[in-house]
């Protein structure tokens, strides 16, 4: 070994010492809490073990009901009025069994879904507790459930009454016969479309009439927004009438209904 390489060794020794110091600093920087240390909480749990509302909501509901429970294509769950009027049992039932006559599928394992009964219950409770109104509602809202299933062919005076309620509460945006604001690409749009009515149940219609779609600008049953200044909130019975009218449109079409009478 000549002097030249000895000289090199000295610089190498320095480099080695430097790298040792760097290594120590790296190790010490993490101390006992090195970021790579696995946390048992991150351990994947099997899907049926998940017992966290946010996680269950994000993986099962957010696709249609929106990331924050609103602004999804399906009706919002993050809506204090909806949360106030729907009984928890009903919410439990809808999540587990789906909603007949709509696109809401059943999530309970007994119905071919992927959630245990416990998880369905947790979701129902979670919707109720997460999105309830902070302040008490300033009015007593109409009942959630449909009281009497509507007759498809009503008497003439009954039909006239229903149309009058419709004109008062809905026609301002949805047009006199439910065909929506014509010529507009978007906006409130048609509610007399057979495909739309075929894919929504009477109970779901009633819910939308009561709660509106606050996330998309549709007023609740009580708000004056988009209606005349003298508008008074519609009653439970009147909401039933509106549902009946839409059910009639569903079975025979809104134009046919107009011609019938």
């Amino acid at each position: 070994m000549n002097y030249h390489s000895l000289n090199h060794i000295c610089s190498f020794r320095f480099a080695l010492r430097l790298s040792a110091v760097v290594g120590m600093i790296l190790l010490n920087a993490g101390g006992c809490n090195l970021s790579g240390k696995p946390d048992q909480a991150d351990l994947p749990v099997s899907p049926e073990q998940i017992a966290n509302f946010d996680q269950l909501y994000t993986t099962n509901c957010a696709g249609c009901h929106g990331a924050t429970g609103k602004l999804g294509p399906a009706p919002p769950l993050n809506d204090p009025l909806f949360v106030a009027i729907i009984p928890e049992d009903e919410l439990h039932r809808v999540i587990g069994d789906g909603r007949a006559g709509t696109l809401m599928p059943a999530f309970a394992t007994v119905n071919g879904g992927s959630l245990t009964d416990k998880q369905v219950k947790l979701l129902a409770e979670g919707v109720k507790s997460h999105w309830k109104s902070e302040a008490p509602l300033d009015h007593s809202p109409p009942a959630y459930a449909i009281t009497n299933e509507p007759q498809t062919i009503p008497a003439v005076e009954e039909h006239t009454r229903r149309l009058a309620i419709y004109q008062r509460a809905c026609a301002g945006c949805h047009g006199p016969d439910g065909s929506g604001s014509q010529g507009n690409r978007s906006g409130p749009g048609a509610i007399n479309a057979p495909a739309f009515l075929a894919l929504i149940s009477n109970q779901a219609l009633r819910r939308i009439i009561i709660t509106g779609r606050p996330d998309l600008g549709m007023p609740t049953y009580a708000e004056k927004r988009g209606r005349t200044a003298e508008y008074e909130p519609i009653s439970t019975a009147e909401i039933d009438d509106l549902v009946a009218l839409l059910a009639q449109w569903r079975s025979v079409g809104s134009t046919a209904v107009a011609e019938q009478h």
Partner: peptide
């Protein structure tokens, strides 16, 4: 069921189109 429909595809849509978005999911 897990990827929300982007909000700008939900706003300004008619009821029929909203139903369509649900069918899409």
């Amino acid at each position: 069921s897990g990827d929300p429909v982007p909000e700008n595809f939900v706003k300004e849509r008619s009821p029929v189109e909203l139903q369509g978005a649900v069918v899409f999911q």
